[in-house]
Design a protein around this nucleic acid. Structure first.
Lengths: 332, 332
DNA sequence: CTGAAAGCGCTTACAG
DNA sequence: CTGAAAGCGCTTACAG
């Protein structure tokens, strides 16, 4: 039915081994032999069977990317970059949507893929560090995000404390004094970014007001919109808001527009992620812009290095470069 | 090294066949045997090797989704829905980013996946119908989008002519008379949506003005922004714009904001896709909203039906339900 | 229900 | 360079 290696060999008049050598770019093939084999491959439309290859070699050249949701712009953009970075290296990426559910994340770690993948890039949301430690994937794993890896795994992440410090300090430098934060709850992202936020307030001689720190229930536009409504209902509303991601900021901007408030005159807004929406929103959104291409490229490179067998015990922790992009939402 | 089926069999004190039967939910297993086997699986942490299974069965329970780019909101949202729909049925989705490049699309069709996948859901951009016809994937294929399938393949798509007619007619009903269109160029999407646009103008007794039909170079925000700038530079600028997707519309809104024009008072804007950004933009975006979950579920169901062996010759063409969501960009 | 065996399509020592 | 053969881990007739 499907053409096999042996069919190609027969047609080219060479051994199976030689065809395999050609396909895998092994040395010691004369140009003439290579030509013959390639002609036979083309004539038969032969494609190697990856299941068979993977079964035999124990390597598939597939890696998994496990993210909470691919419909969310930050993860969509990141997934696109990681796919590209992998493709450049001849690797295919399988994307797992965990929806942030512990069970789904555990499935990923348990090797749900049935030994098909060679390694995994994992952006955890629900899984606690303790569980991560016990996760015996048996495959190399690179962590994304602020969740501390406990020195167990390689990790690639923005220095969120410093970035949040910068974002908040920017608002301080504008003369704002009642600076709120949206997204402090739940995840470790919230905790880490709040740390930088508070640090900046302290450095500016401001005390943080618990009433201005909103947790919300998630990191999406509706959560930002709802949190902003709470802030506006305060006896003394804020004159600036640092949202812990752009989606929250976009939701907050929507609430401010509905309330007829001017941005940045009445309330200045800063986000985090630099997703494309923020660059076209009215007003355009000031934000922390991590270098996503750098992130993707280094995460893939790190993983492939481990897959290739580099197992030294010094687990690497890479810090993603970022910039603060000042746009209309803070600079009228 | 890795535990195998035979290890489980040995530990459970049963035959390899019995373990396989349990794993694959075959009948005629006593509860007691099943328990023993499941205990052994749990104790050993056994996971079936999908490469071996796929090699033997000729089926992997993997399908591919080939889209131009996963970083683009519409495709990101659609990909998320398709992943979910597939997961519900025990199927895993591999996502291929073609970047709309002919070579990449051809690779997909040539079965680059090396017979790993059971079928493919394909959203073509560059590949012409003629090439599609000749594509001998050897696997079931479901087409997405307006590109006519020529009766060759199953297809799931919005009735873009009708939807564009509705969008344009909505602008007419607002009393607008100089209604521009952005995105008429290049792709078959542009051609089809222009058809509906012109039809609506004609039905309203308006003639279409070539100066108001902008092709642009793509379907992203910058393209929409640039096209809108061209329209504003016209001696007689439009009083409404139908953008052939939301990204174009969001770019156009940005240009209008920069120009100090009011939406919808000066210019009304309609998009197509209903991506989440449009629901939070200021102003919120009126748009054609296809039922993405319906689309995803039916595309997956159609493909799995073919994979299961339904090969009747009546190729199916499913029409995705949609609504016109009227928001601030047309209803002040 | 069980057990022994073949075979899916590769890669890889092995002997030449 | 070639050729013959083993084996990756499954599933599946086959005989019982």
């Amino acid at each position: 039915m499907a053409t096999r290696l042996s069919d190609v060999a027969a047609r080219a008049g060479v051994s199976v081994k030689t065809v395999s050598n050609v396909i895998n770019d092994y040395p010691h093939i004369t140009a003439r032999t290579r030509e013959k084999v390639e002609a036979a491959i083309a004539a038969l439309g032969y494609r190697p069977n990856v299941s068979a290859r993977s079964l035999r070699k124990g390597r598939s050249d597939f890696i998994a990317l496990a993210i909470p949701e691919m419909g969310s712009p930050y993860f969509a953009e990141l997934g696109a970059e990681i796919s590209r970075a992998a493709k450049r290296r001849g690797i295919t990426v399988l994307i797992d949507q965990t929806e942030g559910e512990p069970a789904a994340e555990q499935l990923v770690l348990d090797g749900m893929r049935g030994q098909l993948i060679d390694g995994i890039i994992f952006s955890p949301l629900a899984t606690a560090p303790a569980n991560l430690t016990s996760a015996d994937t048996g495959k190399p794993l690179v962590l994304l995000g602020e969740r501390p890896a406990g020195g167990q795994f390689d990790r690639v992440a923005v220095d969120s404390v410093q970035a949040s410090y910068d974002a908040t300090t920017h608002l301080v430098s504008l003369g704002r004094r009642r600076i709120a934060a949206i997204g402090v709850g739940g995840t470790s992202t919230g905790a880490v970014r709040r740390k930088g936020y508070r640090k900046a307030l302290k450095a500016a001689g401001l005390t943080h007001d618990p009433a201005l720190e909103l947790a919300g229930t998630g990191y999406h536009r509706p959560d930002g919109a709802a949190s902003m409504r709470e802030l506006l209902a305060l006896p003394e509303p804020p004159d600036a808001v640092f949202c812990f991601n752009d989606l929250l900021a976009l939701g907050a901007l929507r609430t401010l527009a509905d309330a007829g408030l001017r941005v940045p005159e009445d309330v200045a807004v800063v986000g985090f992620d630099d997703i494309e929406d923020g660059r076209y929103h009215s007003p355009t959104l000031t934000t922390i812009s991590p270098d996503k291409e750098w992130l993707a490229d280094n995460a893939v490179a790190l993983l492939l290095d481990r897959i290739a067998g580099n197992n030294d015990d010094t687990h690497r922790d890479l810090t993603v470069p970022y910039t603060l992009e000042i746009r209309e939402s803070t600079a009228g």
